[in-house]
Structures are given as C-alpha cells and as structure tokens.
C-alpha cells in the first residue's frame, strides 16, 4: 500500500486539502506522509521529549482525521496551516492538562528520556558550535518570538500561514518575526562575548 501511495507525484497542498474535505482516505495518508516529520519536529521543540512528541504527533493526525470524517473541516489557507494549528493547540492542551512540566529546551534531565533526537541534536551541536549558541539563545527568547521563528525558519511556513496558525494578522507576525530575530541576534552576541571572555580567562 505504501508503494502505491508514494509511486505517484506528490499532489499540491491545496489539492490534498480539497480532497480531505471530500473525506478522501488516500489523501489523508499522503498528508500524513508529507507532514509527519514536520509536525513531529514542531512538537518536539515545544515539549523536548521524544516519547511525548511521538504521542502528540499521532494525536494531531488522529484529531484531524476525526474532523475530516465528521465533515467539519473549516476552510484553511493550506493543509499545513490546518495541521500546525491542530499541533499548536494539542501542545497547549498538553501543558494545560499538566502532562508536561516547564521543560527547558536544553534541560539536562530531558536527555535521559530522549534517545535518538537528543543524540541528533547533540551531534549537530558538536559539529557546529554556532548552532549550539543559537539553540541556547532560543531557549531564552520570549515564547511568542520563539514560536514564530521556529514556524517560519524550521517548519518553513509563510507569514500568512503563521498568522492563521497563531490567530494573528500577517502584519503582527512580521513584526514578531523581526523583533524575535533581533532579540535572537543580541542574545547570540552576548553568548559569544561570554564565551570569548571565558576562553581568555582560561
């Protein structure tokens, strides 16, 4: 079945969304294949736990499928907007229900739980010290800034899509993005200076 699904050229996001409105099962599986990794990554950076990210990712797609089956799919700008909106609300509910503690992105204790991805990030950071700097700086950013930055540069959503996901106007999103990047640049600079001072002291 998998080969049947992947043998065709990937349909556009818009077409998939329209097919989903018609309760098309094959379209849903295609959407799942196309967006599973992205949704997982988005959730993973929010909950910082591989197991939780896996569960919540499955939960997101099941929620979407139940909405599709019920024929209650609202008109979204794109399928990505819909999926990331559901993912965002799923994470919010997860924290609201108290399932997730206030876990920091670079929380040392989380490393015990996370196996593959934490190792991936560690490996990435060992290769690239600048990435580690940014990763640490991201954790210090306002959640609003961090969310928009991650959605735009990691999940590659457009400003309009992000506006739909976070329920703000595109102009506001642009402002948040600009301020967030500026804050991230300043934080990265400060981190760099601290590290340089440490090196000189040693």
């Amino acid at each position: 079945m998998m080969s049947t699904l992947t043998s065709h050229k990937q349909p556009s996001d818009r077409l998939l969304f329209l097919r989903l409105k018609n309760k098309d099962q094959a379209a849903f599986m295609r959407a799942y294949e196309a967006y599973r990794a992205g949704i997982y990554r988005f959730i993973y950076f929010r909950v910082n736990s591989e197991a939780e990210a896996q569960d919540l990712t499955s939960s997101v797609f099941l929620k979407v499928w139940s909405v599709v089956q019920a024929g209650k799919l609202k008109d979204y700008r794109s399928l990505r907007s819909l999926l990331y909106t559901v993912a965002r609300h799923t994470v919010i509910d997860y924290y609201r229900e108290g399932s997730g503690g206030n876990v920091s992105l670079d929380d040392e204790t989380a490393e015990i739980e996370v196996v593959d991805n934490r190792l991936d990030i560690q490996a990435l950071m060992e290769q690239d010290s600048d990435l580690k700097l940014i990763y640490e700086a991201l954790d210090q950013l306002k959640p609003e800034y961090r969310e928009v930055i991650m959605l735009h540069f990691v999940s590659e959503l457009s400003v309009k899509e992000i506006a739909e996901v976070i329920d703000k106007k595109p102009g506001n999103v642009r402002v948040i993005l600009h301020r967030g990047l500026e804050a991230l640049r300043k934080l990265t600079k400060e981190e760099e200076e601290i590290k340089q001072e440490d090196t000189i002291t040693i």
């Binding site: 998998m2 599973r36 950076f45």
Partner: peptide
Amino acid sequence: MNESGIIQKLKKLQSIQPNKDWEAKQH
C-alpha cells in the same frame, strides 16, 4: 553572527527527524 547566519543555522534544525521504527509502526 549576523541575521543571515542565524537563519542558516536555524534551518539546520530541519535535519531533526523522528525515529524510523516509530515512523514505520505509526504508519
């Protein structure tokens, strides 16, 4: 690090992928 440098590094985070076994099972 300038803004474009930061954006480049952020894009590197896209290489984080879910566990392959979980992916197959979940599918």
